[in-house]
């Protein structure tokens, strides 16, 4: 069994999942690939299986965060040391997995986040999202002590210490945002961002893609303010308490 696993959470991604798997196979041929099929109603599982991935089938749709966490738990149980996560809608370029993994492999970071804003992708977020990112990015940067540009990016690499911590109940079942970054930073995990290329999603119907359209900007603002506030009030267990062997 490989030391590395690439997890791909997928919800109704039959059009793009196979293409993503092939891209990952080319980029990291030694890694095992696991698709977490989060209760899709289409042929996502079949397409992914045919492309050569191992399938973890959720019995019902549990959310993006829960799908990622299933991947973390699977990686934990099966003794993987490194993990990369990539979205199934084709917006992340698998070529960049190695760049995400490099700081993890050399031991300089526990979590590496692929940021679409560190290089010019021609990506323009909607106005409300841009304002939100600017405000919460600035707040988060101040708390964690490094410049956070893309806290919502799902293109990440983690070492065992990090995914062991995220496999606990403190991890959200929907979308990890700036509050989770703060929590992980306060737990003692080292987080870094690297520049990655991102494309528009291949699947316009993907519910994961439309995470912001389901929240009105006002609700998102309220939710983030509350989450960041309570995250700062909480006493989080440090990563040494949770993963003592590291």
């Amino acid at each position: 069994m490989s030391e590395m696993v690439v997890i791909i959470p997928a919800y109704n991604e039959e059009r793009s999942v196979a293409q993503v798997i092939i891209g990952v196979q080319k980029a990291v041929p030694t890694a095992d690939i696991v698709v977490i099929n989060d209760g899709s109603q289409d042929r996502t599982a079949e397409e992914a299986s045919r492309a050569g991935a191992r399938i973890l089938d959720h019995p019902y749709n549990m959310g993006y965060g829960a799908a990622l966490q299933t991947g973390y738990k699977f990686a934990l149980e099966n003794g993987y040391r490194y993990l990369a996560q990539i979205d199934a809608d084709g917006q992340h370029d698998p070529e960049y997995i190695n760049e995400l993994l490099a700081p993890i492999l050399e031991g300089s970071a526990d979590i590496v986040i692929g940021s679409r804003f560190l290089m010019d992708n021609g990506y323009r977020a909607p106005f409300a999202k841009r304002v939100g990112m600017l405000v919460f990015g600035a707040l988060t940067s101040r708390i964690v002590g490094y410049h956070v540009t893309d806290p919502t990016s799902g293109f990440q690499a983690l070492n065992r210490r990090a995914f062991c911590y995220c496999a606990r109940d403190c991890y959200p079942t929907d979308f990890a945002d700036a509050d989770v970054l703060i929590m992980l930073h306060r737990a003692g995990l080292r987080i870094r961002e690297v520049a990655v290329r991102m494309y528009p999603s291949l699947n316009r119907k993907s519910r994961y893609l439309n995470m912001y359209s389901i929240f009105t900007p006002a609700y998102y603002l309220f939710k983030m303010c509350l989450l960041m506030f309570v995250t700062l009030l909480r006493r989080e267990q440090s990563v040494q308490e949770v993963v003592p062997e590291w």
Partner: peptide, 20 residues
């Protein structure tokens, strides 16, 4: 909700072992 999520995740992983 947390307990059901954990059970469903456990079921998912065990199901994948069974299929293997």
């Amino acid at each position: 909700t947390t307990q059901v999520k954990n059970l469903a995740q456990r079921l998912t992983i065990l199901d994948s072992y069974m299929r293997e």
